[in-house]
């Protein structure tokens, strides 16, 4: 029996998840010894045909990163599902929709109209838009069509596990690989590569009750106290609702948690929960004052749903 077969694929994503995979550094050699990487466009010259030729279930584990933005993403998601025994939604885009998912604040037409007509750096008097197919002398050129909205991997195919993070931290990736190699798989549907509770659990800052009179953005705060909860200092921090696992990387460097590890175990809608929680601790009784303080959160959707809009209950702008 040969080595287990691994695949890593990127759909609508930035490529950071592959880089994170390489962040396990010299352990990549252990991985290479243990598994046979059969498909990974980022690292190897592999084609769709190579996958299509495989038998169903031939790939033992596929780490699928990226959201489902276009027809190509969907096609390969369905293909890899068929070919893989274990399909992992790897990284925030595949698990929750992540940054590409913020495209759900508009739709495909809105995005194209802005990108190809309205953006300040665009000069396009003929209003040329990308087309799904273009005829040239050599024949027909095609592009995969863009869907109206972004979906998560789970929303288009059956998945086995979710592994959140933008990107997942190397230590968690290595831990997951070790678990998979050990053959002792967690129950289907589990969120893997995370720690119990929320980012606050991993954050060493002292915490107290919270009564916020001003929200500040990082550039507006003079000096951040390194020992006190960032939220108590007026910096929006998504840590209280975000799944632990990263080791509280951002709060450690005076940056509020962005929320990339997605909703904690006990909740369904991270953005809604965070907005509710943070609005709750505004210290004011006067409606105008409350409005003034909440207006200091410049981009509420981008702040609270930055990584999780398509996977949330609302899913998109409605």
């Amino acid at each position: 029996m040969g080595k287990p077969k691994f695949a890593i694929y990127w759909a609508a994503s930035c490529g950071g998840c592959e880089i994170a995979f390489l962040d396990i550094r010299e352990k990549i050699l252990d991985v290479d010894r243990a598994v046979d990487l059969v498909f990974c466009p980022c690292l190897m010259d592999t084609k769709y045909e190579d996958v299509e030729k495989m038998a169903d279930g031939e790939i033992d584990v596929c780490l699928f990163n990226g959201a489902i933005r276009n027809e190509e993403n969907l096609h390969i998601a369905q293909l890899l599902r068929r070919k893989s025994k274990v399909l992992v939604a790897y990284g925030s885009c595949a698990s929750e929709g992540c940054i590409p998912g913020l495209g759900n604040l508009t739709d495909d037409e809105g995005i194209c109209r802005y990108s190809f007509e309205e953006s300040p750096s665009t000069v396009n008097p003929e209003k040329v838009h990308p087309q799904k197919s273009t005829s040239i002398e050599a024949g027909e050129l095609t592009l995969p069509g863009m869907f109206k909205y972004v979906r998560t991997l789970e929303q288009v195919v059956d998945i086995d596990y979710k592994m959140p993070g933008c990107p997942p931290v190397a230590a968690q990736i290595w831990a997951v690989i070790q678990t998979i190699l050990s053959g002792d798989l967690p129950p289907k549907g589990s969120v893997i590569g995370v720690s119990p509770k929320t980012v606050c659990e991993e954050c060493d800052r002292s915490k107290d009750e919270k009564r916020i009179k001003e929200f500040l953005r990082p550039h507006e705060i003079g000096e951040v106290d390194p020992d006190i909860c960032l939220l108590e200092q007026g910096l929006v921090c998504n840590g209280p609702g975000t799944q632990a696992g990263c080791g509280a990387l951002c709060p450690q460097v005076n940056m509020g948690c962005r929320g990339c590890y997605g909703p904690a175990e006990g909740i369904k809608d991270l953005g809604g929960k965070l907005a509710g929680a943070i609005a709750s601790v505004i210290e004011a009784d006067d409606p105008e004052e409350i409005q003034r303080i909440s207006d200091q959160i410049v981009d509420p959707v981008g702040t609270f749903y930055r990584f999780s809009l398509p996977g949330s209950i609302l899913g998109r702008k409605i």
């Binding site: 509770k197 606050c200 659990e201 009750e209 919270k210 939220l231 632990a244 006990g266």
Partner: peptide, 15 residues
């Protein structure tokens, strides 16, 4: 409190 889920952020204390 469901202790398995609580990380002691303190938000509920003020509420």
């Amino acid at each position: 409190v469901i202790e398995e889920l609580c990380s002691g952020c303190g938000i509920c204390v003020s509420m």
